[in-house]
Structures are given as structure tokens and as C-alpha cells.
């Protein structure tokens, strides 16, 4: 177990390091910051002073070390819009995004897992085929198209739901639905195939043949074994939520990190974009790490067979 944990920790660390190196490379390659700040017709002396002031005349390795040190203490540079630290601009927006993502994740689980389980128990019936068809469509349609179609239906035609902002509870309905749909489809597909796999295992067949009550078979034998693939895709789902929130927030003018990310990318406010990319990447790495450790904890086979 110890070696399994240390391998996973090392992987997470390496991934984070690659991400940060990538961000640093992109920032340094994107042109001389002095021309971005002082203008193209800056004179040589001013440019030199600028380079000296920000350490741009030193070797790249030293600059990279400085960059890492700054990131480690939470200094992600300053947003040029409003001249505030980029990290506080992002943190201001974070609660709105987290509530949106949390609500969507809960809804996706509540819809996807039971439907996937139902499809597996009714394998091959019309109910199964209907759920699979729904899940395939839900998985293929991009979030912004779902969002636009929802606005068209509930906002424009029926006029019963607000279409932008987050002022009231009613404002949550459409963004949460749009963000939950693809993930609910993913959960349904994974749950279905996981339960189908477990149902054909000898121990489950044996349990059913011994005449155990259905509830015991389900709780003791099916749920624990089928839950591993479902938990494993949490990392993937979180990535989907990050990407989905970026798009959905822009469809519904939701004042969260996703909207900030796109606005900053359009304004080329690099400090803010970099902050969101690094924080988002680190969140993904941590989520995957926790999923790996959790799965290894509940299923000893994983920590023995994988290196």
C-alpha cells in the first residue's frame, strides 16, 4: 500500500510540475512583457530598466525558480483589469462556480446512477434501449447547445424562467440542468455497464441461487462491486464539470470563474487566465489522486496489480 501511495503521489507531483512548466513556457514565449506594458515604441533604456526591475535579464532557470517560488506563496501576478492580484479576482468568483458545479454533480448522480442501474436490471427491454438512447444523445450534445435549447423553451417560448445571472433560486434551474445533462448521461452509461458486469459474476449468481433476499444481494454484492467504475470516472466527471461550467456560465451570464476565464482570455489578461488554468489543473490532479487512493482502499486488488 505504501509503495502504491508514493507512486500515485509522485505522479500527481510530476503532472503539476509539467502543468506549471507549460504555463511558464507559454507566458515567456508570448512576447516581451515590456512591449505589452509600455507599448511597441518604447525606448531601449526604459525597456532595459523594465527588464531589470522584473528580473527578465536573468537566466531562464533563475526566472523559472522565481516563478515557482511566487506560485508556491500564492502570487499569480496582477490582473491588469482593475490592477488587483489575480488570485483574489479568481477567488471572488469561486463560490458561484462551486455552487453551480456542486448542484450539477448532485443532480447528475441522482439521475444518472439510478437510470443506469435500472437499464442494467432491465437489460434488452424497451426501457433499457430508451435510457441508452437518451444517454447517447445527452453525451453527444454540447453544453452550450443544451443551454440554448433550454433558453429557447423555458425562457423565450414559455417565459417561465430567468435566462441570465444568479439572483434567485430560479436562476439555478437552467444552468444546473445544462451542466448536469452530459454528466448524468456519463454516469448512466458507466453504471449500466458496471452493473451488467457484476450481474454476470459467479458470486452474484451464487448469491441469487442460494435464495438470498434481493435486497441483501443488491446491497452486499452488487453495489460495492459496481461502485468502483462509477467512482473511477469521478476524475473524468470533474474535468467535464470544469469545462462545462466554462461554457455554461457564458451561456447564462453566470458570474463565476468560467465567465471570468473566457472574458480574461478575450482581453488577454494573462495573469488571470494562468491563475485559473493552474488552480483548475491542480484541482483535477488532487481529485484524481483521491479517487485512486479511495479505490485502492476499498478494493485491495487495485493496489496489488497496478504498479
Amino acid at each position: 500500500m505504501t509503495s502504491y501511495v508514493s507512486v500515485k503521489l509522485l505522479r500527481a507531483f510530476v503532472t503539476t510540475f509539467i502543468l506549471v512548466t507549460f504555463a511558464f513556457t507559454v507566458l515567456r514565449m508570448s512576447g516581451d512583457p515590456s512591449t505589452a506594458v509600455l507599448g511597441l515604441d518604447v525606448d531601449a533604456a526604459a525597456q532595459e530598466r523594465f527588464h531589470e526591475r522584473w528580473g527578465l535579464d536573468r537566466p531562464l532557470t533563475e526566472q523559472f525558480a522565481d516563478y515557482l517560488r511566487d506560485l508556491a506563496v500564492g502570487d499569480f501576478g496582477r490582473s491588469f483589469v482593475g490592477d488587483r492580484p489575480a488570485i483574489s479576482v479568481v477567488l471572488d468568483r469561486l463560490p458561484q462556480t462551486l455552487t453551480l458545479m456542486g448542484a450539477a454533480l448532485a443532480l447528475a448522480l441522482l439521475i444518472g446512477v439510478p437510470l443506469g442501474g435500472l437499464a442494467a436490471f432491465r437489460y434488452g427491454t424497451p426501457a433499457d434501449r430508451a435510457i441508452i438512447a437518451g444517454a447517447t444523445v445527452g453525451y453527444c450534445v454540447p453544453d452550450f447547445v443544451i443551454g440554448i435549447l433550454l433558453i429557447l423553451l423555458f425562457g423565450a417560448t414559455l417565459q417561465i424562467l430567468p435566462i441570465s445571472g444568479n439572483a434567485s433560486l430560479a436562476h439555478y434551474i437552467m444552468p444546473v440542468l445544462a451542466l448536469a445533462a452530459p454528466n448524468a448521461s456519463l454516469f448512466a452509461r458507466i453504471t449500466r455497464s458496471a452493473v451488467l458486469d457484476v450481474l454476470s459474476q459467479p458470486h452474484v449468481i451464487a448469491a441469487r441461487m442460494r435464495g438470498l433476499p434481493w435486497s441483501t444481494t443488491a446491497l452486499r454484492h452488487i453495489v460495492p462491486n459496481a461502485s468502483i467504475p462509477v467512482i473511477t470516472i469521478f476524475g473524468l466527471v470533474l474535468g467535464g464539470l470544469v469545462v462545462g461550467a466554462t461554457v455554461t456560465e457564458n451561456v447564462f451570464a453566470w458570474p463565476g470563474v468560467g465567465q471570468l476565464l473566457v472574458t480574461s482570455a478575450r482581453n488577454r489578461d494573462l495573469a488571470v487566465v494562468q491563475t485559473i488554468v493552474i488552480l483548475g489543473g491542480v484541482a483535477m490532479v488532487l481529485a484524481n489522486l483521491m479517487v485512486d487512493l479511495f479505490c485502492a482502499w476499498i478494493d485491495p486488488r487495485i493496489r496489488v496489480t497496478s504498479r
Partner: peptide, 15 residues
């Protein structure tokens, strides 16, 4: 392990 769109947005905003 990283969402590709985040990396794309970083590159697009830089270049």
C-alpha cells in the same frame, strides 16, 4: 489528467 480546454485557453490568450 488535465482538461485540454484549459491549456488551449491559456495558449489562445497568450497568442
Amino acid at each position: 489528467a488535465l482538461p485540454y480546454i484549459l491549456l488551449v485557453l491559456l495558449v489562445l490568450s497568450a497568442f
